[in-house]
Structures are given as C-alpha cells and as structure tokens.
Amino acid sequence: MKNTTTIALREFKSYLASPMAYVVTGIFLVLTGFFFSISSDTYYETSIRGFLGIGSILLLLLASVLTMRLLAEERKMGTLELLLTAPVRDSEVIAGKFLGSLGMLTAMLVLTFYYPLLLMWFGDPDWGPIATGYLGLFLLGGASLAVGLFASSLTSNQLVAAVVAGGILGALWFAGAAADLLPEALGEVINYVSLSYHFPDFMRGMIDTRGIIYYLSITVLFLFLAIRSLENSRWS
C-alpha cells in the first residue's frame, strides 16, 4: 500500500507539472461548459444532463490521453527499468499508476462542480440525478483509465497506446448501437458489455447495482490485464 501511494503521488504530481494535463482539462471544461450552457438555455431545466451527455463521451478520449504515457513513456525512456527493479510488486506499480490518473480525473470532475453550483444559484436543482450522474462519470472514468493503462502497458509508443485505448473504449461504447441490429438474446449480451448502456440510468438519477458492478468489473479486468502484461515483459 505504501509503495502504491508513493507511485500514485508521483504520477499525480507529474500530471500537475505537465502542460498536457492542463490542455486536456481546459478542453474538457470548455466543451462540457458549452454543452451545459446550451442545454440549460434551450430546455430551461435545472439539470446537468447536457454536461453529463457530452462529458461521458469526452471521458473516453480524455482517459486515453491521460493514461497513454503512464507506462509507454517509462518504457521508452527506460525509467521502467528502475521502477521494476525496486522492491515493489508489479500490482503495486499498476495500482499506483491507476490511482494517480484517477486522482487527476477526480480533480477535473471537481472543477466541473460549478455547473451544479450555478444551477443552485439560479434555481432549485434536483440533487439526486446530479449525484448519481457524477457517480456514473467517476465509475465510467475509472473503467476508461484502466483500459488506457492496459493499452499503455503494451507498447513504448504513446500514440499507439492512445489509439489502442481509444479503439477498445470506442468499441465498448458503440457496441450498444450494434446491439439493436442483432437477434434479441445476443443483443442483450452485447448491450450488457457496452460502456454506454449503463450510463443513462446514472443520468436519470438511478443507482443500478448492475451498472456499478459492470464498471468495476471492467476496471478490475483491465488492471489485471495490465499487471499480466507488465509481468510478461520480464519474460520476453
């Protein structure tokens, strides 16, 4: 645990020291802010649905970009060698990197708190869907970061890592759209494994345990794959 914290803190500080994190955060805030204001303006509703809708899709891109360097850069620069020869478990390395990026994502989500605060200032928002919406974003974001971290463990090229992560996340997100074209039984299965299928419930203010379990499973699965991929690199 101590090692995990040490690595997570280093990663988090490294984000704060890199211009990329600020650019990504800036883009995220501008785009989500734009959609938030449009939806509030158009529908005269005190909800953050506009933000959640665009935010969920943006999260996929953002997670790919935030995680691409986590292991790929270390592999390319050679710093992975010192990390993996320290008395630290591979699982601690992965957990630390994941928590570091999750910290960054959380910070970005916290920065968007001013959307609901604005609603409170001007009206009387329903806090239920806002809270579950944020929970959904957090879970979806965590799962996406795990996918991205796994992609980053596969290569020493950050761009490749980002594209692979984007590819996996895109496939998992849009699988739901394909499900409608398939026979019902198969479609249901595809729907269940789709990242997008579970999200609307959170937007509507519902906490579906299936959704929570689904996002957590994706997170754990890809973190596990990342650990295996790291272990594998020792045996190459």
């Binding site: 090692n3 040490t6 280093r10 490294s14 050679g78 320290a86």
Partner: peptide, 23 residues
Amino acid sequence: PEAMPLYRDMTVRSYLDFSSRLR
C-alpha cells in the same frame, strides 16, 4: 542501469525522495 534513465520532470530532491520511499 545502462544510460541512467531518470524522470526529467522531477527535481533531484524529489526524485531521491521518491527512490528512497520506493526502496
């Protein structure tokens, strides 16, 4: 290690702090 790879975005102090914790 060969070619001594280091985190370029850290100061000497913070890097040594990181290393000593990790070890």
